[in-house]
């Protein structure tokens, strides 16, 4: 059974069933089911600290779930041998929040890194590929710069060029818009959408930037408190009847998630006996 409601999306690439994951006593995911289609932009949204980045690491096999399965392209990620997992990862791209560029290498060397590691192409061919990938993100002119000379937005674009270096079947974006100025954010939004459309791949965008993410998403999962709160097309989310979803989408200060942290009545607190401790 496919979970997502059909909006002309193709077959499922990632199938998550009964996912449970905890860190110490804290439950991050409790019996989560998800289907992510083979093409299109799927957004995973939710408040900070709900485990969105953890979910990407679970999909990439960097973390192991306590229970449940994650299948990527029909392969159970956590039952693969290391060699097979690495083979699968060659077909995954991931854009980390920080960009995760190798700081001792230039922009060119960074984008060339996965190509040199996994192919036997000659240097002339590697250079051509790197130039094309950098051109796709608009940074061909920055080829000789070092990561320390790049702005945050540029570093993420270089990381995108590196993520598409091996022509993956999917790219996972971890909070791609965090801390970006409006122009950089606009560039990243356009790039994620255009790369997805041109390469016809699966893009998973983890973010809590509602406006930007909703503008490019084909399908949305909203996660909170260890479960999928709601999922569907962006329009369905905007018109959701759930008060929680509406509060999240519209960024309302008060609602099901209260403005005030749990506390005794203000009157009682203000006029409590001097020196008397709270119960």
């Amino acid at each position: 059974m496919v979970l997502y409601k059909d909006i002309n999306l193709s077959e499922t690439l990632i199938k998550i069933r009964g996912l449970k994951f905890s860190r110490g006593d804290r439950v991050i995911f409790d019996n989560v089911d998800m289907d992510i289609p083979r093409t299109g932009v799927t957004a995973i949204m939710g408040p900070s600290g709900t485990g969105k980045t953890t979910l990407l690491k679970l999909i990439g096999g960097q973390l192991t779930p306590d229970a449940g399965t994650i299948e990527v392209d029909g392969q159970n990620v956590h039952q693969l041998k290391t060699k097979d997992l690495y083979t699968l990862r060659k077909r995954m791209g991931m854009l980390f929040q920080s960009g995760a560029l190798l700081t001792d290498l230039s922009v060119f060397e960074n984008v060339a890194y996965p190509i040199r590691e996994h192919t036997r192409l000659n240097e002339a061919m590697v250079r051509q590929l790197v130039l094309l990938k950098l051109n796709a993100v608009g940074l061909r002119g920055a080829i000789d710069l070092s990561p320390s000379e790049l702005s945050g937005g540029m570093a993420r674009r270089v990381a995108m060029a590196r993520a598409i270096a091996l022509d993956p079947m999917m790219i996972m974006y971890d909070e791609p818009f965090t801390g970006q100025d409006p122009i950089s954010m606009g560039v990243l939004v356009k790039l994620i959408k255009s790369l997805n459309d041109v390469l016809n791949i699966c893009s998973i965008v983890v973010s809590h930037d509602v406006h930007e993410t909703m503008s490019i998403a084909d399908y949305v999962y909203i996660v909170s408190a260890g479960t999928v709160v709601e999922h569907g097309a962006p329009e369905d989310m905007r018109n959701s009847s759930s008060e929680w979803t509406r509060q999240f989408m519209e960024g309302l200060a008060d609602g099901p998630v209260p403005f005030h942290f749990e506390a005794p009545d203000l009157f009682d607190d203000l006029f409590a006996e001097s020196g008397k401790k709270r119960a």
Binding site: G60, Q62, R89, K90, F96, A100, L101, L102
Partner: peptide, 17 residues
């Protein structure tokens, strides 16, 4: 520092040990 800046995780996701 490579761990803190996710460079090691990035390498793992590029299928590089």
């Amino acid at each position: 520092l490579m761990k803190a800046t996710e460079q090691l995780s990035g390498m793992e996701m590029m299928a590089v040990n």
